[in-house]
């Protein structure tokens, strides 16, 4: 995860680079090389995800399940990024769990992250046995993504399907914060 933070920092740097002195531009080149190596962490079992994010104390954790091939998922990501910026410094953590395929990561999620910065952690969940872990998301969830969870001190809320807009997402966060 450190590498992701570093990556976000580099992305910020690249934003500043738009002001454009030669020196900063050199930094910009570094950005390209560094981000090319930025690969999200792969979690092979749902338990790892559960241990890491479902048991967090005293913070709200927003977990969004998405994939680069899922159009409605990709469409709602800017709203998540906006929310993550708004709640920065508060006890709200944003986690983006990608269900992209491991064997095509280099062509899917790696370039996607490169061109679409995330204000939060991105992990790839490779646990294929969805039928076993789906119940931990919601009793009524049957596997269609996007799906978003809000977890605070073990209390869980679910939003199945995409948020219509930023307001709907913000309301969801407010109801669970």
């Amino acid at each position: 995860m450190k590498s992701l933070k570093f990556f976000s920092f580099l992305l910020l740097l690249s934003l500043f680079a738009c002001t454009g002195t030669t020196e900063v531009k050199r930094d910009n080149t570094t950005v390209a090389t560094a981000s090319a190596d930025a690969k999200p962490e792969i979690l092979t079992s749902f338990d790892q995800l559960n241990d890491r994010y479902f048991q967090v104390k005293d913070s709200l954790v927003i977990i969004n399940f998405w994939a680069t091939w899922c159009k409605p998922c990709v469409r709602e990501l800017p709203d998540f990024n906006e929310a993550a910026l708004k709640y920065k410094g508060q006890k709200v953590k944003f986690v983006f769990v990608s269900l992209d395929f491991l064997d095509t990561m280099e062509k899917s999620i790696v370039p996607f992250i490169k061109s679409n910065p995330f204000n939060g952690e991105v992990v790839v969940l490779a646990d294929q046995d969805v039928n076993t872990w789906a119940i931990n998301i919601d009793n009524n969830w049957d596997g269609a993504i996007p799906v978003t969870l809000a977890i605070k001190n073990g209390k869980k809320s679910t939003k199945m399907g995409a948020f219509q807009n930023y307001e709907e997402l913000n309301n969801f966060i407010q109801q669970n914060i």
Binding site: W69, C70, P72, L99, V130, N131, A134, W141, D142, G143, A144, I145, G161
Partner: peptide
């Protein structure tokens, strides 16, 4: 676990498949 194959085999024996329902990721 080959869910559909097991379900067909259950039907062939005149039984109800278990599990009767499973969850999976897919395109909405």
């Amino acid at each position: 676990k080959k869910y559909v194959e097991s379900a067909i085999e259950a039907l062939n024996k005149g039984k109800n498949p278990t599990p009767a329902e499973t969850k999976a990721i897919g395109c909405a």
